[in-house]
Simulated scan of single mutants.
Amino acid sequence: MTVDRRSVLRSASRLAALSAAGGLVAACGGPSDVHGPDGPSVAARPQPAHLTESPAAGPSGSPSPSPSPSPSATPFALPPLAADTPQEVVTGPRTRPQLALTFHGQGDPAIATALLTAAEQHGARLTVLAVGSWLDEQPQIAERILSGGHELGNHTQNHLDICALSAEQAHEEIAQCAQRLERLTGSIGRWFRPSAAQYANAMVKEQAQRVGYPHVLSFDVDPRDYADPGAETVTRRVLRAAAAGSVVALHMDHPGTVTALPAILDGLAGQGLHAVTASELCA
């Protein structure tokens, strides 16, 4: 199915009138993404050693280069995680009819708002891992995400290949985004996802813990929507690979993903699955 970007953007703009919005476009996805020839493959990676939840430490790093609004968003009340939640979450429990749709947070806020609205109309809650530079450009989007009952987390400040950085550079990338989240919402969020990588290496996990993230959020389903294969293809790839406990990696800044989301949610419902936040999945 061919996606008419102008039509989607016009629709997104109408939906965006319900909420505040503004724009920045960028793509996400990296060489470590795992997929098959016509769809995502489920990661067959052993889980790391378990780590129980601990209080989040305050982030450190360089001061913000620009002022931002005072905290006005109320963070979604996070359920406590299960005591055996691993340090790097790839999937949740396979025993409940739930999965998590996680979105790399960047791009045109009108598209992002359209996507959030579509999820809310289907009773779904999403997890958005925001890039800090996006929050600098569009600080109001943090409140829009949380006010819809969704979850907000950290996807680094500038979306660099974090596993290729030095330890201090990686720390700064994580800490600077955490500062934006804390200033805008009063919390650094529970989850950190590495940029340009599916999995965090040992150095990145260590730096995430230094900032206050005991858990890294990976994923097991990658429909490669960042390549713009079309809404029908994105839908088919998600529905073929997703199962109870899956963590699906998607992107907010692609109109085809907005178009695909209602069909994805309808298809998941037909399979008896419901989209919840990553924290709900791992509770």
Rank of each mutant, 00 (worst) to 15 (best):
G245W: 13
L18I: 06
A263I: 03
V34W: 14
I162Q: 08
A110V: 03
H35A: 14
E120W: 02
L24I: 13
L181C: 05
G29H: 10
H150F: 07
H274P: 00
P139K: 06
S32H: 05
A243V: 06
P40N: 00
C177T: 09
P93G: 08
F192H: 08
G148Y: 03
L81M: 02
P109C: 10
A57G: 12
G123A: 04
E120T: 12
R6Q: 14
S195D: 06
D33R: 12
L129N: 14
R237Y: 07
A26I: 12
Q106H: 11
E53P: 03
F103I: 10
Q176A: 08
P69N: 15
V128A: 05
S11F: 15
V8S: 07
L24Q: 14
V258S: 09
S147Q: 15
P40I: 02
M252V: 06
Q98C: 06
L146F: 02
Q47C: 03
V204W: 13
V3F: 05
Q87A: 14
Q179P: 08
Q47E: 05
H35P: 01
F103T: 09
R224D: 00
H150E: 13
C163A: 04
R190W: 03
Y226K: 04
L281Q: 10
H171D: 11
G22S: 14
V247I: 11
